[in-house]
Design a protein around this nucleic acid. Structure first.
Lengths: 165, 165
DNA sequence: CTGGTATACTTGAGCTGTCAAGGAATTTAG
DNA sequence: CTAAATTCCTTGACAGCTCAAGTATACCAG
């Protein structure tokens, strides 16, 4: 059984992959728990709110939103159901294409997001960024950034790029 | 809404965190799909099989297994239910402590794992390791490795360390 | 030996996401 | 203009995991 890992991929490579799996599980579990306990938001909910907040007019097509947060179309439907019921997001239909529905962040939703951001950023700092130097964070971000978009498309990279301003 | 991200954490730091979320989602989804389609195994199933294969006597306490793969106790119970039903894992009770049950990898389970490993390693190579140079992989592994164990404990790090031999 | 606490595991209820299928609007081909 | 293919979204059925609660065993203090 020792040879299991040595057929195609060197040990170090597998170790990196396993670290990705473990660190993700450990971190998201803690952050999600905090977020749910304090604000009644899932990590995915939060993620969607952030995406909407950054979008022009705080609106996005559901399909684009799905791609942004790496969820399926049906996943987005159900997730938005919850956010709509809470009044943080509402629908808006598209004038030029009746198939598409926009998800729009409401004022209440933006307020909610601001509220949640404060504690969530603290969690991110404590659990994630706090363990690295600036330069390491840049490196880590750059490395991980190669793992998506490429096969998918460049839109994502762009949607994630303008974090500031 | 532009100031949302600039309160506590610099943009670059958040970008790294988002990259972690996105890359994990994108990669695990593809790998899981492949694994299920070809072998009828979940990524978590696979992960558990690997852990058992590496353990002395191919046996582990359920509670330790849970910690290794970052699952709750009940999560492990249900996951192992499936693997037991398939005949890849069986139970063994502990002589010195009647509370614990060991999960033991059967011969069939080991065979299954070998079978799955071939294609799964190819997936890892294609989607993950293939996108990095050796040195980058080492770096990535080292950085991600800081994100768990610490707050939890050192056992994990050790359990993950001896990948080879 | 008795009672209280901690540990290992299981189970019921529920949440979040998936896939497969389908409806509706749009585009494309003929 | 019609027919086929494509895109966007929703829904039913279900998988996988969580939490809360419960059972059973072990340990510890008196």
């Amino acid at each position: 059984m020792e040879q299991l890992t040595s057929q195609v991929i060197p040990q170090r490579a597998l170790a990196a992959w396993i670290s990705l799996l473990r660190s993700h599980s450990a971190l998201t579990r803690q952050m999600n728990t905090e977020l749910v306990a304090r604000h009644g938001l899932t990590l995915s909910d939060y993620d969607v709110l952030v995406n909407l907040a950054r979008a022009p007019e705080r609106a996005m097509r559901r399909v684009d939103l799905a791609a942004s947060v790496v969820l399926t179309a049906s996943g987005i439907t159900r997730l938005l159901d919850g956010l709509e019921r809470a009044g943080w997001v509402c629908k808006r239909s598209c004038e030029v294409d009746a198939r598409v529905t926009y998800a729009v962040l409401t004022d209440a939703g933006l307020e909610k997001l601001r509220e949640a951001a404060a504690t969530h950023h603290a969690d991110i700092q404590r659990l994630f960024t706090g363990r690295f130097a600036d330069q390491e964070l840049a490196q880590l971000g750059a490395l991980l950034g190669r793992l998506y978009g490429e096969n998918g498309q460049g839109d994502d990279a762009e949607a994630c790029g303008p974090l500031e301003s």
